[in-house]
Design a protein around this nucleic acid. Structure first.
Lengths: 323, 323
DNA sequence: TTGAAAGCGCTAACAC
DNA sequence: GTGTTAGCGCTTTCAA
């Protein structure tokens, strides 16, 4: 039918007919059925985005980058949440793939075998985001959390701290926090230093947990001179705790978090952190799906792209000036 | 085909055939095509959720409530974000309706005429959430922001404050913040008091903005004795500012925010706030879509449901004890 | 318990 | 520039 052509601004249609159709559509309150359209054309303007959580702030920011980039490509992101559970990830992925999206963006490089198999067989661009320490299925955009931890270790040591504690989530599937801790340990090991203590939490208000954990770890290991938190929210809690207690930060005790969340800007003191390049990651991932990356003239390359971003250390004022 | 029956656990199929089909499916890495399925069955297991923003924390929490409830109904939420722009809302709604979802959950009661028309004609359950002050299209679940503001006015006056300032977003389309301010003004008016000053912001780190706005409004109106913030994040910023400056809270200056975000638990002092019942709203909205509300034995009632929740005042310790 | 056939509402290819 | 036709991959209905 000509109607189809008008509604999609396709092919040659006379202005008159066009107007007529548009009017009729408006008056009838006609909403096209994309299900039928997709079935007929074998094309779906949806991009599956699979992330572990929406309450982490990091992911909403990645989403923002994705949405912004996708805005004028005609593609629409569809979000699925896994709650850091591999089996949920598998289920969500299956569900989404059954709608035949144009591409998949998903967090992390660790997936169940079944999920990997689905991704490999999907025949659409797959972009794994956030992390580059591992074997991607197709494309990957992220930072090396291992190197981030290592870099932080160097900064800590350069500033003269020696008794370092790590505070983070207990979640067994937060692979990126784990890699940062491993990177930190490796960096310390190079200087012959061992992580002095560690403390984990799960659930609850991150800010409050940060306070509690800080109190706990300092009670247990009063000689610690640096605390590395796995995220900025618990780090901010720790900072507020130290200020309350009159602990000399960064003289007596140094602090650092991770992510570079904008929340930190309003704190009484600026927590040291490392920017995880969240919006940037989202933007690039979306570009890859949309086939908009420079150097890829339309046709997709087999094997995918590997983009490693470099997180910048933001020393803030909770870490002593080196030297 | 029999295959279809197996994959949907439908009708009578012999165990033998069933096994055979399941095996074949697994080996081929078969993922059913829901597009075709949906077209044939005229049923789609998707629920459209349309919200203004993901960075507001409030909406991710509503999402959590929705997801949790939908978990075992076979329905899947699909998120669309409007950035508080009516035309974006209209576009997102159009896009989503064209996938023929089983229901729509969307924030607020204010929509463009076109959007209203689409909603009315969609022939599926519509649930407007967050706010009950207005005319719903179908069902509605939320709180009265006007009454929330009014109740806050009463609490403020009862505690003896008289020179009240309001601080909020400049966004012209944040109708709920506007209604809270109007409620506040109405409550003050009953005691013959007029809002002493107000200050608005847009964009940026809410915590930081809260600090800046507080400084600005106090510089302009040093005699204010209470500040009512349109959300907890800017309120928290204001609280941190006051503590920095050594302002006596709540003696000299009372503070209150809105939402009851869990972040507040980690602050040095507990900001007074009012719980917006976010997860609860999400849960009930999802129940309505899933047809799970008690008293609705399957068949949906024309006209929809109206659920008004009552926000609780959490006085914290930034408001003087009354009397 | 299984197979065959029709058709969901569109798009693509081709004829007019 | 416009109409016609044959599917897209399923579900549904009905017959075997």
């Amino acid at each position: 039918m000509t109607v189809s052509r008008v509604l999609r601004n396709r092919g040659d249609v006379s202005e008159a007919t066009r107007e007529k159709v548009l009017n009729a559509a408006r008056n009838l309150g006609y909403v096209p059925n994309k299900i039928a359209g997709a079935l007929a054309s074998q094309r779906v303007n949806l991009v599956a985005v699979i992330i572990p959580s929406l309450s982490n702030m990091v992911y909403p920011e990645v989403m923002t980058g994705i949405s912004a980039m996708l805005e004028d490509t005609g593609l629409q992101p569809v979000v699925g949440v896994t709650h850091y559970q591999p089996d949920r990830e598998e289920a969500v992925l299956y569900e989404m793939l059954s709608w035949r999206p144009s591409g998949v963006i998903l967090a992390g490089l660790e997936h169940s075998d079944a999920a990997r198999a689905m991704l490999s067989n999907a025949g659409i661009p797959i972009v794994e985001i956030m992390d580059v320490d591992g074997q991607p299925v197709d494309s990957v955009v992220g930072i090396s959390h291992r190197r981030a931890g290592l870099k932080m270790a160097e900064a800590i040591l350069a500033a003269g701290y020696r008794r370092i504690g790590f505070l983070g989530t207990m979640m067994p599937y937060d692979h990126r926090a784990r890699k940062r801790m491993e990177g930190l340990q490796e960096g310390l090991a190079r200087a012959g230093i061992v992580l002095a203590d560690q403390e984990f939490y799960s659930g609850g208000s991150a800010l409050l947990k940060g306070r509690e954990m800080t109190e706990t770890i300092l009670a247990r290991s009063p000689d610690l001179d640096f605390l590395y938190y796995s995220n900025d929210m618990i780090g901010a809690g720790g900072l507020l705790y130290c200020l309350d207690k009159g602990i000399d930060v960064p003289g007596q005790l140094g602090l650092a978090g991770f992510n570079g969340v904008e929340l930190l800007d309003g704190l009484p003191r600026q927590l040291a952190t490392m920017d995880a390049c969240r919006a940037e990651i989202g933007r690039i991932a979306a570009e890859i799906i949309a086939g908009k990356r420079p150097g890829m003239a339309g046709g997709r390359v087999i094997g995918g792209e590997q983009v490693e971003l470099t997180p910048k250390l933001q020393p803030g004022d909770t870490i002593r000036r080196a030297g």
